[in-house]
Amino acid sequence: MADERRQFARRLRRQATGPEDVLWDLLRGRRLDGLKFRRQEPLLGYTVDFLCPERKLVIELDGRQHGWDQGYDAARTDEIERHGFMLIRFRNDEVLDDRDAVIARIRAACTP
């Protein structure tokens, strides 16, 4: 099962959306305050868009399909937060249109 999740995560990384690529470019290689982020990372039976294990922070990007899956997203958020992670969500257009605000929110969430 773990191998299937890893393969799924790899496939998602290869098929990244434009907003995911933009945010990854801002986070990768410890570019944000020296923090290590991973993308499309298996966590608790889910595959999260971005994970900073050091700060127990999960970042999810929501495209149009997430408007249809609000119940699933809420249950997923509750499960992840129950395990001590903070989860923040951004709409795709936020990442594309206001990168500075997105980074400011991530930075604030990473502040201990």
Results as ranks from 00 to 15, higher is better:
P53S: 07
G67C: 04
P42Q: 14
W24G: 07
I80T: 04
A9M: 10
L96K: 15
L43P: 01
R30G: 06
I80F: 15
D62M: 04
R10Y: 06
E79P: 00
A101F: 01
K56I: 13
D33R: 13
D3W: 02
G67R: 11
R6M: 07
A75G: 11
E60K: 09
L51T: 03
E94W: 13
Q15E: 15
V48L: 05
P112N: 14
R82H: 02
R91F: 07
V22R: 09
A101L: 04
L27M: 03
G63N: 11
G71F: 02
I80D: 14
L23N: 05
H66K: 12
G34P: 02
P112W: 15
E41N: 01
L57Y: 05
E41W: 15
A101M: 06
R64L: 09
E4P: 01
D21W: 07
G18I: 10
Q70P: 01
R64M: 02
R105Y: 12
R38A: 04
E94Q: 11
F8G: 05
L51I: 09
I103S: 01
R38M: 09
E4Y: 15
R14L: 05
Y72D: 12
T111K: 12
G63W: 10
I106W: 07
G18N: 09
D49K: 03
H83T: 05
W68P: 04
A9Q: 05
R89A: 03
R5Y: 12
R30H: 12
G29T: 03
G34N: 08
E54V: 07
L23S: 02
C110R: 04
V95A: 07
A101P: 14
G63Y: 14
R89Q: 07
I88L: 11
R82I: 00
T77C: 09
L44V: 02
R76A: 03
E81A: 08
L96W: 11
R105M: 12
D21V: 06
R31Q: 14
M1A: 15
Y46K: 01
C110A: 12
Y72L: 10
Q40E: 10
L43F: 01
V102E: 12
L57F: 06
R89S: 04
T111C: 03
D25R: 12
A108Y: 15
Q7V: 09
A9I: 08
A109M: 05
G67P: 01
G63C: 10
D33Y: 07
G45P: 00
R31K: 12
L35D: 01
D73N: 08
L23R: 02
H66I: 08
L87T: 13
Q70Y: 10
E60M: 11
R13P: 07
V102C: 11
L27W: 00
G71A: 14
E81H: 10
D97R: 11
R31C: 04
T47P: 00
L12A: 09
R30Q: 15
V95L: 06
E4A: 09
W68R: 15
R89I: 11
I80Q: 10
E54W: 04
R64V: 11
W24T: 13
I59K: 14
R13A: 11
L26K: 12
L26I: 00
E60Y: 04
D49E: 10
L44Y: 13
R28Q: 12
C110G: 10
D49Y: 03
